[in-house]
């Protein structure tokens, strides 16, 4: 007895916005006719929060994880109890993506301590003797474009030993001078982060220059709140002792799923930062941090 259940969404990229309709087909493939007690679709949107062990105790982190926040849940019946004929059966469906009340659909985001995920589950109930069949597929939600004009907010920066903080022995630092510019810190999530950087001088040869994209997740709960910064990705933009005085481009694409428009709610926050990291040949690490504000237009 082999019957398989599958959900195929019409959109290849599986991205939907609030108010739109998820259209697709439920595909049942079996050799023989399948008797069932009804096929239903369930849509669910959940924010999972987890406390980091750094902020609270290990046990609390494990046990006391914050209750998931439900964003959306709804259920429809696709087929009434009956029989599906053998072969491949496609049952089309349309499922509106509407929220109840004043809830907002946050954008899909996969992080470390915060996860926003939307799923569509198809269940086929069957008689006692046969196992129920179930299939889950994830779909992406992009939030509505933010209103208001996005102001480009270019940032010019200069990094020298003097501008550094957290330096134990300022005297031991080699001399260097790096100038640069980020074209915007208010970034459109679909557009790459751009800018340029010039090594004007450096006493010690440069080993590498990298862009580190960092997420800052904050979870609030009864005990207080936890704020954790973790790396999303690290992109090298210069390798070796690059030509001084020649501007090198800063360019980074924001990865899908792992980034979302900067989000601030009562229970949790998701923010992003970028670090420009320079590694010198004597293994000095020089980092300059820039908070970013991501949005979707």
């Amino acid at each position: 007895m082999s019957a398989s259940l599958d959900i195929r969404l019409k959109r290849a990229n599986k991205v939907y916005h609030e108010g739109e309709v998820l259209a697709g087909v439920v595909v049942i493939i079996s050799k023989e006719a399948v008797q069932h007690q009804g096929i239903s679709l369930t849509m669910e949107g959940i924010v999972n929060l987890q406390l980091s062990s750094k902020s609270v105790g290990v046990f609390e982190a494990f046990y006391n994880s914050v209750k998931p926040i439900q964003l959306i849940t709804s259920n429809i019946e696709v087929v009434k109890p009956g029989k599906v004929p053998g072969g491949k059966t496609e049952i089309p469906f349309e499922f509106p993506l509407n929220v109840k009340g004043n809830k907002v659909l946050y954008e899909t985001y996969h992080g470390v301590f915060v996860n926003i995920q939307y799923t569509l589950r198809c269940d086929m109930k069957r008689s006692l003797l046969a196992k129920d069949l179930s299939k889950t597929c994830e779909f992406m939600v992009h939030c509505q474009p933010q209103k208001g004009k996005l102001l480009p907010s270019p940032v010019d920066f200069t990094i020298t030993p003097e501008t550094m903080q957290n330096v134990k022995e300022r005297g031991s630092l080699p001399k260097f001078m790096i100038r640069g510019r980020l074209n915007a810190t208010n970034c459109v999530i679909t557009q790459p982060l751009t800018g340029e950087l010039v090594v004007e001088s450096s006493e010690v040869p440069i080993k590498s220059i990298e862009l580190q994209l960092v997420r800052v997740e904050t979870c609030g709960c009864a005990e207080g709140y936890a704020r954790d910064a973790t790396e999303i990705q690290n992109i090298q933009i210069a390798e070796g002792d690059i030509c001084h005085g020649l501007p090198i481009p800063i360019y980074m694409v924001f990865p899908r799923l792992f980034t979302c428009p900067t989000l601030e709610t009562t229970n949790f926050k998701v923010e992003f930062e970028v670090n420009v990291v320079m590694v010198l040949h004597d293994d000095h690490l020089i980092t300059e941090n820039f908070p970013l504000k991501l949005c979707r237009v």
């Binding site: 290849a12 990229n13 990705q233 992109i235 090298q236 933009i237 390798e239 990865p255 899908r256």
Partner: peptide, 25 residues
């Protein structure tokens, strides 16, 4: 070009954009 092909293509580009080292990327 149909959507599936576009999506696949886009996936390749996203994947490559996240390669850490400069030269391979």
């Amino acid at each position: 070009v149909n959507d599936t092909a576009k999506e696949t293509c886009l996936n390749w580009f996203f994947k490559i954009a996240s390669i850490r080292e400069l030269i391979p990327r």
